[in-house]
């Protein structure tokens, strides 16, 4: 292989690796956004009705109304007649998330005990809380961030207090909170406890923040870059295996 060809290939490989990196535009800037514009409804709730266990109430949808309707539909499916995973049909929009969803539910689980002489109804109420994903923001290692929740209302229009625990002391996020991360991770905060049965289902948040990041690079491009490097290396492997000159 000539020197120029080697240098050209090396330059091409370097360009393939570095170009995606320098096109990074992922750092978030300051701004205001309404987080409840889009939702993900996702719970780990297990629906127990007799022998039916539902753990598939996962729905992703950009449209708020449709998502809630779908979620309600799943929860009301006491007989488990819905397909095991209907999320494929509902995942029309981009993957989004709900930032708070709590709902106490209680259902009557029919249990019938039969004996020789009588039939006894031992039906019980089973309850549970739909556990939501906590609100979270992605922060890169070394980045500093600030956040201030300007407004937090549940779906009944009630104000909600958002706070972050700092050394065991709650810090109200209605005032500007600043922090930094030593490792890449998610900054999460909490809200006051669920209000009870059929209570708060979601919270609309308005906030001002700096330092949080949103992904913007092409995953396909990176997969291709890694694949190209892999293929190049395995071409060398194949070439070395073919060349009789290097036989040992």
């Amino acid at each position: 292989m000539s020197g120029f060809r080697t240098a050209a290939i090396a330059f091409l490989m370097l360009a393939i690796v570095l170009v995606p990196a320098v096109t990074d535009e992922s750092d978030a800037d300051s701004g205001t956004a309404r987080m409840s514009d889009s939702y993900i409804l996702s719970t780990d709730y297990k629906w127990i009705s007799g022998t039916i266990i539902r753990s598939d109430c996962f729905y992703y949808k950009a449209s708020n109304t449709e998502a809630i309707n779908a979620f309600e539909k799943c929860l009301n499916d006491r007989e488990g007649t819905l397909p095991a995973d209907d999320s494929g049909n509902l995942r029309a929009g981009e993957m989004v998330r709900i930032y708070y969803a709590t709902k106490n539910i209680a259902v009557n689980v029919p249990i019938t005990v039969k004996s020789d002489s009588e039939i006894t109804d031992k039906s019980q109420f089973a309850g549970g809380i739909i556990m939501p994903y906590p609100a979270g923001f992605f922060v890169k290692a070394g980045d500093s961030f600030t956040i201030r929740i300007t407004e937090a209302k549940d779906n009944y229009g009630e104000d909600v207090v958002c706070y972050v625990m700092e050394n065991g002391i709650p810090y109200d996020l209605s005032k500007t909170y600043s922090g930094s991360m030593k490792t890449t991770g998610e900054f999460t905060f909490e809200t006051d406890p669920p209000s009870g049965a059929d209570g708060r289902f979601y919270i609309d948040l308005k906030y001002e923040s700096t330092g949080f990041s949103e992904p913007s690079g092409s995953a396909a491009l990176y997969a291709a870059v890694c694949a190209v490097v892999t293929i190049a290396i395995f071409c060398i492997l194949a070439y070395s295996g073919m060349k009789p000159k290097w036989s040992k």
């Binding site: 995606p20 990196a21 096109t23 990074d24 992922s26 993957m95 890169k140 890449t184 990041s213 992904p215 913007s216 690079g217 092409s218 995953a219 396909a220 990176y222 997969a223 890694c226 694949a227």
Partner: peptide, 16 residues
């Protein structure tokens, strides 16, 4: 990354 493409289209290029 190709597997993650099933659920995501975008990534953090600097982190990768």
């Amino acid at each position: 990354i190709a597997t993650a493409l099933k659920d995501y289209d975008t990534i953090f290029p600097d982190l990768i």
